[in-house]
Amino acid sequence: MDLETFRNHCLSLKLVNEKMPFDKAKGDYAKNLLVFSVFDKWFCFFNVDAFDFCDIKCDPEESEQLRDIYEGIRPGYHMNKKHWISIYFNQDVPDSKILELVNKSYDLVVKGLTKKQREELKNMS
């Protein structure tokens, strides 16, 4: 998986925005995080310099199953370990599975949006 393919996939989802929300002066891993969100609700992020893994939302039960199957899936880095996972690129998780899980993360976030936001999303062409 390369950065541009991954980024383009995230941006292909309805009403997705990308941003780098952290102060560049912090000097830590977070300063180069590229975050993908829908209505300002995060569903995916990764470090643009390292591009070694991404964090995504995940159903807690599925998260356990995925960690049992793949060495490249671990509890979410710096996130709620129950609801987020880290997926390491170029390990044992197929690219198609990574993109599928990004879509599921997006869907989880959309389910948590307000009714008005979901309607707006639904009416987008």
Rank of each mutant, 00 (worst) to 15 (best):
M1S: 05
M1G: 01
M1T: 08
M1Y: 02
D2T: 03
L3A: 09
T5S: 15
T5N: 14
R7D: 02
R7L: 04
H9P: 04
H9N: 09
H9C: 03
L11T: 01
S12N: 10
S12K: 09
S12W: 04
S12P: 11
L13P: 13
L13D: 10
L15D: 12
L15T: 02
V16M: 02
E18S: 12
P21W: 10
F22H: 04
D23E: 12
A25S: 15
D28P: 08
Y29M: 11
A30W: 11
K31N: 12
L33H: 13
V35E: 07
V35R: 12
F36K: 08
F36Q: 08
F36D: 03
V38Q: 10
F39H: 13
F39P: 13
F39K: 12
D40L: 03
D40A: 02
K41F: 02
C44H: 05
C44F: 03
F45M: 13
F45H: 14
F45D: 05
F46S: 01
N47K: 06
V48T: 12
P60C: 14
E62C: 07
Q65T: 03
L66F: 10
L66R: 06
L66M: 14
R67H: 02
D68A: 15
D68Y: 10
E71G: 09
G72Y: 06
I73Q: 03
I73E: 03
R74K: 15
P75S: 09
Y77D: 08
H78V: 06
H78Y: 14
H78I: 10
W84T: 01
W84D: 04
W84N: 01
S86M: 05
F89C: 00
F89R: 02
N90P: 05
V93A: 00
V93W: 06
P94Y: 11
K97H: 09
K97Y: 02
I98R: 00
I98M: 13
L99Y: 10
L99C: 00
E100Y: 11
S105P: 07
D107E: 14
D107T: 05
L108E: 08
V109N: 04
V110F: 04
G112I: 00
G112K: 11
K115Y: 05
K116H: 12
Q117T: 08
Q117G: 14
R118C: 02
E119D: 15
E119V: 11
E119S: 15
E120T: 11
L121S: 12
L121E: 12
L121Y: 08
K122C: 08
K122S: 14
N123S: 14
M124C: 14
